[in-house]
Amino acid sequence: MSTKTNSPQSPARRVQDEIADLERRLQEAKARLNGNGDQNAVSGSRAPRLPTSDGPLSSSAHHFLLLLADSALPLGSFAFSSGLESYLAHTRPASSFPEFLDFSLGSYASTTLPFALAAHRNPMAIVELDDALDAAIMCAVGRRASVAQGRALLSIWDRSFSSAVIGGASAEYVEALKEFTVLLRSASSTASSDLPAASAHLAPLFGAIACISGMSLQQTAYVFMLSHVKALLSAAVRASIFGPYHAQKILASVEVQEAIQRAITREWDTNIEDAGQTIPVMDLWIGRHEMLYSRIFNS
């Protein structure tokens, strides 16, 4: 039941959503007044659009949207700061978290979001997308972070989600993921080679699993980017840049909402061949994380 929106959400669309929502509530209220509770027909006619939607969370797609957006999803994201720790060490005392957030959002979107989008559009291509992303990550630290979280997500799929989403999911996509898992296991048993058959990077797996779980392309992109911001803020709190309330304030801010939306709009039509680094110094900071004397994060 995936409903694919073809363009990212604009303010106009948000107003349309609100109108649709108000109309639905009006109809429901009328239905209650008339004593006939035919709600399914009404809610079924409305496209579930998140994250602004506050509609009924009845469908399995919504359920998995919340699970994949949850910071308790055991990906181990808390172990990675995506270059924040290294940035602080390189720019002290002139460090600025808003500046880094800006850089990180732009850079993360331009390098990885096209892969998540491509995998959602075609989960059958998971092996090729994983390989292409593996060729495009130029530093050891970033590669480790992406692979660690990707493998964790694949395990979550394998052990926890797959038995629950069989319902609406396309059987061939599920089969493609299964084959990918087998390929990954065979690749890691022959670990000596420079060229692995599969690596399990986060972005393409996230796109594919979100697609199978019934999330729309727009939801997938938003959750993917929001999770990155959440991981950065959580790292910032643990690096003692600011406290948890300030972190929530930034997370909730209109600036972050707009920046995510702009990043998605910018990368919506980017081919994976054209995905690239827009903030070159980011590669230097992330690559030099290994050079820090003391580290609390893995990236």
Binding site: A135, A263, G276, Q277, T278
Partner: peptide, 13 residues
Amino acid sequence: VRDKVVLGAKSVN
């Protein structure tokens, strides 16, 4: 390896 750098595309802010 595919190394791509894109400079000057409009930034996310």
